[in-house]
Write a protein that binds this DNA or RNA. Structure first.
Length: 604
RNA sequence: GGUCCUGUGGAGCAGUUGGAGUGCUCGCCGCCCUGUCAAGGCGGAGGUCGCGGGUUCAAGUCCCGUCAGGACCGCCA
């Protein structure tokens, strides 16, 4: 090694030792006769002093982020000159020798913890951004999270197994990324949206306990917590029940929060059914750091003459409310803003009533439309106090109104300052529905088509697909879904019935994932698993607002990488070689997703 | 595909009612400086106000379009 010690590790007990350090100039304070340089390496910062002689002459020329090597003796700082802000603040290194390993040009972005730059500049010079302590710490934390997960899984006899990233387009929810295949022009690989099918095959293969820190790809639009390539801690186990998988999930998450957040999660983590989550919180990933629960007013308001509510109730729908504590104090403009907020979510508006802080009397546009009796009992019905505001939503489909109220609940908590930023609130959302209506009047799988109905519905989910429940579970932290999984179907007859309900013909099923069904002919074990959204989970542990902070080289929301400039056009030669424009042969394999291959004509 | 916010020397910001590229902090270049630690002092360089069009006697400022970054909706089994 070029260095003998790590800069950040030096302490008063090292005084008198001669050391060689290597790192970067974090800051230079040139007093003419004496020069201080803060030398930073991966371990931290130590102050180097240049007083006289050649090293001091050289040190005048140092600039921020020069890469240097310094040899010198560690000494206690003169009394009164200690810096309690630094772990190494009691000592300094008196330079006897200085080597400039490499110089740094004027910086396009300050490597300074006190200044934050815009995202585009940070990403373009991400290697400089990562020299700063915050971004650096986030990546190092993620590395430790990986190790902790591997440790827990290894202790439980899991095997870490890699699966292909060039694979077959599968009929999962999102758009696939496609890769042209030079060796078979006109055919395409897809990048996996998850290793779902492979890990099930590994169960058939008798691996019994599999995990992988797996890169997944989905060609959908970006969010603060979504990139097109992302990472899952993917796990699958044979011969287990839902409780076994949940226990494992708690062991992993418990270890992560214990070691990386200094927080002991009390287990078992509370479970809430999907339906209860929707009716109480208007979300399938409820943030339990605060209350502000929804109230179902469908029965209470039955018979109302207010058309908006009556219409929903008559259609067999739902009317509900959520209370904003102190919301009556909002200005007219703030209340109008709520209407814009609701419209931005595709709602027609957000009906509200404010309760006078003195008299408790209900006021507001909607109050005129409600009967005396309905108004008189409203505060008690929704648990509101004088000075509160009550927001209403009504819809023919309960879930639409609940989701609007759920979004309002989050907004209320944020605006009213009800969120305890230091709190951790975990829960499992269990008993998710098997199916939901698709746009064409049929059914689609809420989770995926291999998810098993629970014990209660296994033999009769066809009777009421809208009410059938699955062995599917999501783990939620502070309103973020950090993982989800299910017990899979391992019986051919059940799988056939599920396909039937989904309107997937035998031929379709065999075209799309015949290889999995084929495998399931040969004694598949009962199995289930979970996938933890690793970027999101690390983001929470790092206290970051975006998963970009825990990704070494993230992309901007346009899918652009400002550092490499990807994506780029390709050359004509690359295009020809890749076979992008080749016409698939008549004997080409079955199309991946759409069922029938779309003929591709070569472009001139 | 839609809604909203932002874009001003290398970085971060301010810029009022439309009136001179106006200001601040940092960085950069030069000089000075022996105990600083986001060192300090003096001097200096550096600008297509994202881009294009329009309104106007006059646009960083108002309008339209466009590009880029961000937040959200749609989308994401």
């Amino acid at each position: 090694m070029i260095r003998t010690h790590d800069a950040g590790s030096l302490r008063a007990s090292d005084a008198g030792t001669t050391v060689t350090l290597a790192g970067w100039v974090a800051r230079r304070r040139d007093h003419g006769g004496v020069i201080f340089v803060d030398l930073r390496d991966g371990s931290g910062i130590v102050q180097v002093v240049f007083r006289e002689g050649d090293p001091a002459e050289q040190a005048h020329a140092l600039r921020n982020e020069f890469c240097i090597k310094v040899t010198g003796e560690i000494g206690r700082r003169p009394a009164g000159n200690e810096n309690p802000e630094l772990p190494t603040g009691e000592i300094e290194v008196t330079a006897a020798e200085l080597t400039i390993l490499s110089e740094a040009a004027a910086l396009p972005l300050p490597v300074d913890d006190h200044v934050d730059a815009g995202d585009d500049v940070r990403l373009r010079y991400r290697y400089l951004d990562l020299r700063r302590s915050g971004p650096s710490r986030a990546l190092k934390l993620r590395s430790r999270a990986n190790q902790i997960a591997r440790r827990v899984l290894d202790e439980r006899d899991f095997y870490e197994i890699e699966t292909p990233t060039l694979t077959r387009s599968t009929p999962e929810g999102a758009r696939d990324f496609l890769v042209p295949v030079r060796l078979q022009p006109g055919t395409w690989y897809a990048l996996p949206q998850s290793p779902q099918l492979f890990k099930q095959l590994l169960m058939v293969a008798g691996m019994e306990r599999y995990y992988q820190i797996a890169r997944c790809y989905r060609d959908e639009d970006f969010r603060a917590d979504r990139q097109p390539e992302f990472t899952q801690l993917d796990i699958e186990m044979s011969f287990v029940t839902q409780d076994d998988v949940i226990e494992l999930g708690e062991a992993i998450v418990g270890a992560l929060w214990r070691d990386l957040a200094g927080y002991e999660i009390s287990t078992p983590i509370p479970r809430i059914t999907w339906h209860e989550a929707m009716s109480r919180y208007g979300s399938d990933k409820p943030d339990l750091r605060y209350g502000v629960e929804l109230t179902d007013l469908t029965e209470y308001l039955r018979g109302t003459e207010f058309r908006v509510f009556a219409g929903a109730i008559d259609a067999g729908g739902y009317v509900g409310a959520v209370v904003m504590p102190g919301g009556a104090g909002q200005s007219r403009k703030e209340l109008d803003d709520w209407q814009d907020w609701a419209k931005a979510r595709g709602a027609r508006g957000l009906a509200y009533v404010v309760l006078d802080a003195e008299t408790g009397q209900a006021r507001g546009p909607v109050a005129k439309n409600l009967s005396e009796a309905h108004l008189a009992g409203l505060a008690d019905a929704v648990g509101a106090k004088p000075g509160d505001a009550v927001f209403f939503a009504a819809a023919a489909r309960a879930r639409d109104a609940q989701e609007l109220l759920g979004a309002a609940r989050i907004e209320i908590a944020s605006r009213a300052g009800l969120v305890d930023q230091s709190a951790w609130a975990f829960c499992w959302v269990v008993d998710a529905p098997m199916f939901e209506h698709d746009d064409e009047g049929g059914w689609t799988a809420v989770h995926h088509p291999f998810t098993s109905p629970n014990g209660e519905w296994l033999d009769r989910f066809e009777e009421a697909p809208d009410r059938a429940l699955a062995y599917a579970y999501d783990i939620v932290c502070n309103g973020n879904e950090i993982g989800g999984g299910s017990i899979r179907i391992h019986r051919a007859d059940v799988q056939r019935r599920v396909f039937n309900t989904l309107g997937i013909s035998e031929r379709d099923a065999s075209d799309k994932f015949g290889f999995l069904l084929e495998a399931f002919k040969y004694g598949p074990p009962p199995h289930g698993g979970i996938a933890l959204g690793w970027d999101r989970l690390c983001m929470l542990l790092a206290g970051a607002d975006s998963i970009r902070e825990v990704i070494a080289f993230p992309k901007t929301r346009g899918g652009f990488d400002p550092l490499t400039g990807a994506p780029t056009p390709i050359t004509a030669q690359q295009r020809t070689e890749a076979g992008i424009d080749a016409k698939p042969k008549a004997t080409a394999p079955q199309a991946g997703t759409a069922g029938v291959a779309v003929p591709v004509e070569p472009t001139p």
